[in-house]
Design a protein around this nucleic acid. Structure first.
Lengths: 250, 250
DNA sequence: CGAAGGATTGATTAGTCTCAACGCAAGTGG
DNA sequence: CCACTTGCGTTGAGACTAATCAATCCTTCG
């Protein structure tokens, strides 16, 4: 989300905390390499060591964790502004695989250069840190969801997250947004079978909570969906306090 | 893990990447406030906004995510050296609850002060960043394990993780280590029922993979346990490359 | 128009949860 | 020192969720 202002250029003012003032942007956009991928290609392989940071500029990606026995689980979906390979040590291996869902453009910045820019730029540095905090928060939330929600709730939660993340960047209209993932990909993210995911989605449709067709998601009643999914959007931007959810005493 | 050298003082040399040189340590240990808790107390509440960073100095903690409906899921276990509240913005809310498993001592450092020290100290700053990366890696791994492992594998995976994390700080002897969590707490971490966790542990015992009694875990054959759990220790220290696990093509 | 990938349906099975007890050990108060 | 309490671990039976296997249908795209 660090560079979420880049593609649309709409956050450039009024939000002091976010960094999208053009001089910061230019630090990278003057010197970077852009690279394009088609859908269903692999950008990074689990175990790779690269000297670059990857900034997703256009398109959607999927970050997966592979197990020795071949199974794999999606850890997060990426959309423009997301970063990969943020471990700035020169030869740090990544412990996930990143592949494209749609056609994708990424900006590649050398880690050395990236570090140099950060060092000379406290506000960029702070934004970078915030970005990292947000990733961790999302990942924690995802852990929670997988651990304690049932199938319907999980899928609903994913819909909520994707919808809200797009709303943040102004990517929603009339309760609808882009949703390029197939049911198989949803399944991998929710730790379910593709078949069961299908039945789950049908269930959500029948209840009138969502519509999903031709790569678009329509959420007519977000509140209802969020209630079902126990979704709490507080974690996405660290600004709003999350609800102080009751939690059984240990 | 940032300050993992503190309690035992055994990493102070030879490891350039880790920071435990006493001058760095003193930055905090000269000025901090120490605070003690008994077992089963709450240190931080989901939704709290504090101006402090918490450094776990002694004991074990549990970080939980609570849902509106009261259910909760453990996100990670904390042991000496772990940090909480690393979002350095003054009034950032935490989106998890931290409570003690054993008696605990924590060091409390004001965020302003913490930031100031970081700013003047690139190597500490880098270590802090690494620490954050490690948390994210652990959280990703946890997400993966909840999503795709079965009950037995999950529990085995948790045992592997706890064992390895202690091994890193020299906390193991003859394949044994401290393990203060109850079966209920294990269950909350693995997204299982306490009852089912119990049967699962019995199963692991019967197979001769572990022994667990009076708050100690004995792992006679780590390799076997790791194989069952699909455990790959590469992610704990970013130094070793994780295995390039095969991952089905998208 | 045919091929391929994605979505849907049905029948069956495996894994996990739920509910309900009971056992055992450590700690507490009389 | 014993009776009581409390927390943790263990066991059993039955219900239910989600996985598996196997087709079939629909849509998109070359």
């Amino acid at each position: 989300m660090l560079f979420s202002g880049l593609p649309t250029r709409q956050e450039s003012k009024g939000d002091v905390q976010r960094l999208s003032s053009s001089d910061l942007v230019m630090h990278f956009f003057g010197q970077q390499t852009l690279q394009s991928y088609r859908a269903h290609e692999t950008i990074l392989n689990q175990g790779d060591c690269t000297g670059y940071v990857f900034i997703l500029v256009r398109g959607w990606t999927e970050r997966r964790l592979g197990l020795p026995d071949g199974r794999c689980q999606t850890l997060s979906f990426g959309m423009p502004g997301d970063l990969y390979c943020t471990d700035l040590r020169a030869r740090a291996p990544v412990n996930y695989t990143v592949s494209t869902i749609t056609p994708v453009t990424i900006a590649i910045v050398g880690k050395l250069e990236f570090r140099a820019v950060l060092t000379g730029n406290p506000s960029l540095s702070r934004a970078f840190w915030r970005e990292q905090q947000a990733s961790l928060a999302i990942q924690q939330r995802w852990t929670g969801m997988l651990g304690l929600l049932g199938a319907t709730e999980k899928v609903a939660h994913l819909f909520c997250e994707i919808y809200k993340r797009q709303e943040h960047r102004g990517g929603t209209r009339d309760g609808a947004c882009v949703f390029p993932m197939t049911q198989t990909q949803i399944a991998r993210a929710c730790g379910l079978t593709q078949v069961h995911t299908n039945r789950t989605i049908q269930d959500l449709r029948r209840r009138g909570l969502i519509a999903l067709r031709s790569r678009r998601l329509v959420v007519s009643d977000f509140e209802a969906l969020a209630r079902l999914a126990q979704y709490d959007c507080g974690y996405l931007d660290g600004e709003n306090a999350p609800t102080k959810a009751a939690c059984a005493t240990v």
